[in-house]
């Protein structure tokens, strides 16, 4: 089924490295963000009082809103990191595998 080129790529150490690192990075970033969102959702049902509580004594900004903005910033931050990893690590590997540099 597989062409010679494809077989060579599958056996290529660089390809294996690319796949395993990309898999680890993507899924850990994603599970982290979805975990935070799930936590927020569950807290809004089971412990709304915690989300409603002001973050500081005598403050007025509730924990829920801080958490919401924190998740937005984390998404943005992880996006920047992912693009950085992709440009500086995945792309050179891809070039090595496809031989475009050679």
């Amino acid at each position: 089924m597989l062409s010679q080129t494809d077989k060579a790529i599958l056996a290529d150490k660089n390809f294996q490295k690319l796949v395993s690192v990309r898999r680890r990075v993507s899924w850990s970033f994603l599970l982290f963000l979805l975990g935070l969102y799930l936590l927020y959702g569950l807290m809004s049902v089971y412990s709304p009082a915690v989300l409603a509580q002001p973050l500081f004594n005598h403050g007025v900004i509730p924990v829920g809103i801080v958490m919401g903005y924190a998740i937005l910033f984390s998404t943005f931050f992880l996006t920047v990191i992912y693009v950085w990893i992709a440009n500086s690590f995945f792309e050179p590997l891809e070039k090595k595998i496809t031989g475009k540099e050679a």
């Binding site: 969102y37 998740i71 998404t75």
Partner: peptide, 9 residues
């Protein structure tokens, strides 16, 4: 907030 976060995620 559920919509605001979800829409970004």
């Amino acid at each position: 907030m559920l919509f605001i976060i979800g829409g970004t995620l």
